[in-house]
Write a protein that binds this DNA or RNA. Structure first.
Lengths: 210, 210
DNA sequence: CAGGTATACAACCGATCGGTCGTTAATATA
DNA sequence: TATATTAACGACCGATCGGTTGTATACCTG
């Protein structure tokens, strides 16, 4: 029951469609994205989608999974190269800013767009978006807790509190850089987290000065 | 050429429609909001809109103005009651969090939704959204600069940098409280700015301890 | 009271939406 | 080789989209 030629081709086009869907959804949202435009952008027919997905919602859920894997590959994985503790925490922040600054997605951040789109309406997609945010927040919180355990952050640090600050300061770069500040927003976001971590770190030499 | 009875009625329904439009747009966005649903929500006919607005874009622009006035009345004005300086700066942050926490708009924040919606597409609406964000950011920056001038914040403070931090920490409450944290997000956002200001303030007794 | 103006409406328009149906061609399995 | 299975398609469906047109009614001005 291994992958034969035909299913392989199917998988390939499936992945190609999901990649385009995530890119387009980072601009117009998962619901704002229409199947007709997605078909035009991928050079396929609209009706062909329903061989891969039962309906639009299933495609949205798979696009969410695809974006999660992209985030794991391009943001989380590079940061894990840094030594555990406060350096990995800051590497995570910098990897995210690099992801935005490099313009990997045309809309800047898939998750930002989708969170803003679904935070108010019920449904399967909303639940998966909420889970993705929860897991991301929990992941940052664990990195903070680890840094505290290693003695690289003050004992008094509230991990969930600091995780919120790091995420908020990183996330708002998307809209500020596009509507207002340009690259300056990246500088602000980087410096905000860097100085916050340095202030809480008994050995600030672990982090760059500026 | 003063307001006569008829024009007054027109103005009243115009304001009522804009209020509903802002409330609905805080959930579905300015473009996601359809004229048909807005008509149903206001108990009027869709075609009646075109007596007040040339097209949907004009209605969107007026809704933006309406939301700006609402923000000025319900967030900025109350904060101006606090004495200028670091106390007014924090009052501004608290007024915003109260606006979110009280659920004044069903979607939490009109501007958050609309920024996420329009940060990627060109047009008149996008330009006005960008201007609103720029003016808001500039307003916070002036409050920071004033606090520095009064000696209530350290001389070394970069006003634009601190303004970005205050705005980002306040804005991300919307999505975090709705998708993840609930009211805890409000606590995180409040404490983050409070502790940041206290750390920069030569006389921390101007601000609450926690 | 006459005439113009503004509010608001129902009916309707072409375009697009998500989705269905029936078919074709290529592949995998027996 | 015979038979399912699968990817992919064009044509089409009812619903909804933003927007137009024509009309009825209420109001203000002359």
């Amino acid at each position: 029951m291994t992958q034969d030629g035909r299913r392989l081709r199917g998988l390939r086009s499936r992945e190609a469609i999901l990649e385009r869907a995530v890119a387009l959804a980072s601009v117009e949202g998962l619901d704002g994205l229409s199947l007709g435009r997605l078909a035009a952008a991928t050079g396929t027919s609209k009706s062909g989608f329903f061989a891969h997905w039962r309906d639009k919602e299933q495609l949205q859920l798979d696009a969410l999974d695809w974006a999660t894997r992209q985030w794991a590959d391009q943001v989380v994985a590079p940061a894990m190269a840094a030594p555990a503790g406060v350096r990995r925490l800051f590497a995570l922040h910098e990897a995210r800013l690099r992801f935005y600054g490099d313009g990997v997605l045309p809309g800047g951040c898939f998750f930002f767009t989708v969170q803003a789109e679904f935070d108010d309406r019920p449904g399967l997609v909303r639940d998966r978006v909420a889970r993705a945010l929860r897991e991301w927040q929990e992941f940052i919180r664990r990195q903070v807790a680890q840094a505290v355990a290693q003695g690289e952050l003050a004992e008094s640090v509230d991990a969930a509190q600091l995780a919120y600050e790091i995420d908020a300061l990183g996330e708002m770069v998307v809209v500020h850089s596009r509507l207002h500040d340009g690259p300056v927003a990246l500088v602000h976001a980087r410096r905000a987290v860097l100085q916050r971590l340095r202030a809480l770190c008994p050995d600030p030499t672990l982090l760059p000065e500026d």
